[in-house]
């Protein structure tokens, strides 16, 4: 492996870490409500704006603006769940009457609304978020990387590790896993499935917003900035297995590396197409994804 390959691998993994911040939330929402949140990219967008505007317009230090972006995303997630997702399991009692088309239309509508709302209220211009550190180049052996990207990746890894640990071991994490694997069984066991879905939406919104904030110095905040990260997340969630969090993390890193090498060895222009090609191959030959199961309910 030559120096450039090491550089590509490391940078690909770092890209993958940011993808994972997005994909985990999407996967959790799919797991718990069996819906695809088509507004997921707009949580990323809102986080990018929240961080940038809080830091630049209000003059708040970046280390405070960053967690605030998570909070803004989580609040938007809470609002979305309470107002738009509740009809999916209307008033607690009529369990099981999931209306798939409702979720598609309402989340797609939310996506369009948020894009246009930001476009009208804040404006169509791109804002560059302030970097966490000004160091423009860090050299680690053959690896060349900006100080901000390195630091942001470190923070993202820490946040992913904490999230994974919470889902695996915490009081609500265990209950969320139970609901996503068997909703009715979880309800019989006394688990408040509505509360579980609120927590998942808050966590998912917070993580996506956090990703947007971390990347805003690299990819400027603009009303449609969330579209590409969202598409990548949809691909990753299918590759990893719908609803599987470890699958989403591994598929994120995998896609990051593939894109990194593909951009250099195959074609830079087709960089964003590699994921879609992978998606098609998986749908043809392994539709359950890396970690998904064909039938999770027992």
């Amino acid at each position: 492996m030559s120096g450039i390959d090491v550089d590509l691998a490391v940078n690909g993994l770092i890209t993958g870490v940011f993808y994972a911040l997005m994909a985990i939330g999407l996967s959790l929402i799919f797991g718990i409500l069996k819906i695809v949140n088509f507004a997921h990219g707009e949580f990323y967008m809102v986080g990018a704006y929240a961080y940038t505007l809080i830091a630049l317009a209000l003059g708040v230090p970046v280390w405070i603006a960053l967690p605030l972006a998570f909070v803004v995303g989580a609040l938007l997630g809470w609002l979305t769940e309470r107002t738009l997702m509740r009809p999916l399991y209307a008033g607690y009692t009529s369990w099981g009457l999931m209306r798939d088309e409702y979720a598609v239309i309402v989340t797609f509508g939310l996506s369009l609304f948020l894009i246009n709302f930001v476009d009208k209220v804040i404006g169509p211009y791109a804002y560059r978020g302030p970097p966490l550190v000004e160091t423009s180049r860090v050299v680690l052996g053959p690896v060349l990387i900006s100080g901000h990207r390195l630091l942001a990746a470190g923070i993202a890894i820490a946040v992913i590790a904490v999230t994974a640990a919470l889902i695996k071991w915490s009081f609500w994490g265990q209950q969320i896993r139970a609901v996503s694997q068997n909703r009715l069984g979880a309800s019989l066991a006394g688990i408040d499935t509505a509360k579980a879905s609120v927590i998942v939406f808050m966590l998912s919104g917070g993580l996506a917003a956090f990703a947007g904030a971390l990347l805003s110095p690299v990819i400027n905040a603009s009303p449609d900035v969330g579209i590409f990260p969202a598409i990548k997340s949809y691909i990753i969630v299918v590759l990893g297995g719908m609803g599987s969090v470890p699958g989403a993390i591994i598929a994120s890193l995998f896609l990051g590396v593939i894109e990194s090498f593909g951009a250099v060895y195959i074609s830079f222009q087709y960089r964003d197409a590699f994921g879609l090609i992978l998606l098609m191959l998986f749908l043809l030959f392994r539709p359950q994804g890396l970690f998904g199961e064909k039938g999770r309910e027992v």
Binding site: T93, A178, G185
Partner: peptide, 27 residues
Amino acid sequence: LRKHPAHYRARAGIGYAPEDRRLVPEM
């Protein structure tokens, strides 16, 4: 009981073993 959400039954001391079991497969 109509006033309460489904999960309240477990809290109230009602256990239910459904015909189709409904276990959590990965636990």
